[in-house]
Each structure stands twice: as structure tokens, then as C-alpha cells.
Design a protein around this nucleic acid. Structure first.
Length: 273
DNA sequence: CATCAGGCGAGAC
DNA sequence: GTCTCGCCTGAT
């Protein structure tokens, strides 16, 4: 177990912000919140009580994996302090979701997750992904015997007929997952190469995948590649931009970390604080 | 019971 | 290039 003290970190807000679909609430005690994450082939329990956060793993695992995954070195105070004081909407949004962090998630998992996310709600997205993992992912267990499932890789999913995916209630997204898995398994799109690309290149490469459009590509860049300049525009963000930024959003002022602000806006609008 | 969810691809022009 | 339209499914 590893316990740290951190500002600008809320495991609840990270969960609710909808960037990670395999982070779920286990329980809410007095003041203390418990969450479970399945990611990177591992299972991790996280407890938070105010600024104190406890990770259910060894020091080594924390240093090598989770510190980076949760972007604990990121300076979110600096981001929030940089916001234009006169921008009332952004100030409120950032204040409301100030514990959000942009995670560094697995590229393939983000591709499939955001294929599923389109025209879909978070609850059902979670259900679809859990179902995919249970059906096709490798079964594993923690040292204390808890069973969990890996996220199925492109090779596995490419061998699943689209019709079978339909049976998982993925709807019309079944075809996208099928086609995209084939593209990646065949090496038409090289994920290791994408990881080394800058934002413009990565975006262009991801757009080659069936079912990946502008919005989904930006989500993948932001949540897997940690390209914080990515700014996914979905229906929520569109509405906020139209209502509050008719003269244009000040992208230039926040160059390089627009994506972090996007998350504050998205979360604030979603939870309609 | 209707509407709509963190869009996208295909086809028309 | 830009526009429209249909789409699986289940939460609300």
C-alpha cells in the first residue's frame, strides 16, 4: 500500500469525468471513498479521504506504473491559476472539477472505448466495455484471489465476427470495432508508431480507422497519448462554446493544454454544477 | 411511450 | 468540400 497527499486530485471526479470506463466506485464510507480500477492488465484499489490517497499496490508498482498513469507529477494548480479571472464560465468549471487529472491510458483500449462511446451514454458504455472484457479478455486474478479481466487486444477482437459483437449489444458500433481490429491486427495502422507521433500525425493516423472521426480521434489523443493540446468537441462542448464563447474560445491563451480545460468544461456541463 | 446519448460513414450535391 | 440522413440499444 502506498499513501500520498495530493492537491487537485479527486478519484471520484476522475471517475465521473468519463475518460476511464473501467474505474468504478466500490463504496462510500464516512468521508472515505473507495474505487477499483482495471487497467494495464492489473487491478488496483484506490481509497481517498480528503487529500490523502491510498493505492493498493507496492511502492515499486506505484512508482513504475500508477504515478505516471494518474499524472501525479502534472501541475494542475498552474493550469487553474492560468485561467483568465474574467472568464466566469471557465473559472466556475475549473473550480468545480479541480480534482480531475488526464490519465495516461492504454492506446488500444481508448480506441475501442471511444468507438463505443459515440451516440451512447456513460452507463451503457461501461456496460458494453465490461461485457467485451468478460467475453473476450483474459481472465486474471489478484494475489488475494480477486478475479478480473484484461482488455482484449486487437488480435483477439479481429478474430471475432461482427455478428458475434452484435450479440454483445454494441449495436452499429460492432462493425467499427471489427474493422478497426482488423486494421490494427494487420498492421495497417501501427499503434507503436502512433505512440511516437506528434498530435497532428497521430490524429491523421487514427482517422484511418473505421468509426474514428474527429471527435473520437481527439479523445484518443488526449486520454491515451496524453496530448493535452487535443480538444474534443462533442455535443456538450459545442453547446457551451455556442452559449458562452460566441466570439471564439481563447485557444491561443491556453495553447498546449486546451484538453485539460476541455475536461473541466465537459465535466461541469455534464454534472450541470 | 418517445427521445436521446461524449458521432460517424455513405451518398447527394 | 459541405450537408443530410440513418443507425443499435437501453436509460430516463
Amino acid at each position: 500500500m502506498v499513501t500520498i497527499t495530493k492537491d487537485h486530485f479527486s478519484i471520484r471526479q476522475i471517475c465521473e469525468s468519463g475518460q476511464c470506463f473501467r474505474l468504478e466506485e466500490l463504496g462510500k464510507g464516512e468521508e472515505e471513498e473507495t474505487y477499483a480500477l482495471t487497467a494495464l492488465g492489473k487491478y488496483l484499489e484506490i481509497r481517498q479521504k480528503g487529500k490523502r490517497i491510498t493505492f493498493g499496490c507496492s511502492d515499486l508498482e506505484f512508482e513504475q506504473i500508477w504515478k505516471n498513469y494518474f499524472d501525479l507529477e502534472g501541475d494542475y494548480k498552474k493550469v487553474i491559476d492560468s485561467i483568465d479571472r474574467e472568464d466566469r464560465y471557465l473559472m466556475r468549471a475549473a473550480g468545480y472539477g479541480s480534482g480531475i487529472r488526464i490519465l495516461r491510458q492504454d492506446l488500444w483500449e481508448m480506441i475501442v472505448s471511444f468507438l463505443i462511446s459515440q451516440q451512447n451514454n456513460i452507463k451503457r458504455i461501461r456496460k458494453c466495455i465490461a461485457s467485451l472484457c468478460q467475453t473476450y479478455g483474459e481472465q486474471k486474478q489478484t494475489p488475494d484471489g480477486r478475479i478480473f479481466y484484461d482488455f482484449p487486444g486487437p488480435e483477439i477482437l479481429s478474430r471475432v465476427p461482427a455478428a458475434e459483437l452484435y450479440a454483445c449489444n454494441l449495436g452499429y458500433r460492432s462493425r467499427y470495432i471489427h474493422e478497426t481490429s482488423l486494421s490494427v491486427a494487420r498492421g495497417e495502422v501501427d499503434l507503436e508508431a502512433v505512440k511516437a507521433m506528434d498530435h497532428g500525425q497521430a490524429r491523421q493516423e487514427l482517422l484511418k480507422l473505421c468509426g474514428v472521426g474527429e471527435k473520437v480521434a481527439e479523445c484518443i489523443c488526449l486520454f491515451a497519448l496524453h496530448q493535452t493540446e487535443a480538444f474534443p468537441i462533442d455535443t456538450h462542448i459545442r453547446q457551451v462554446l455556442d452559449a458562452w464563447y460566441q466570439d471564439g474560445f481563447p485557444f491561443a491563451r491556453y495553447k498546449g493544454y486546451e484538453g485539460i480545460l476541455q475536461q473541466y468544461i465537459f465535466y461541469y456541463d455534464l454534472r450541470k454544477g
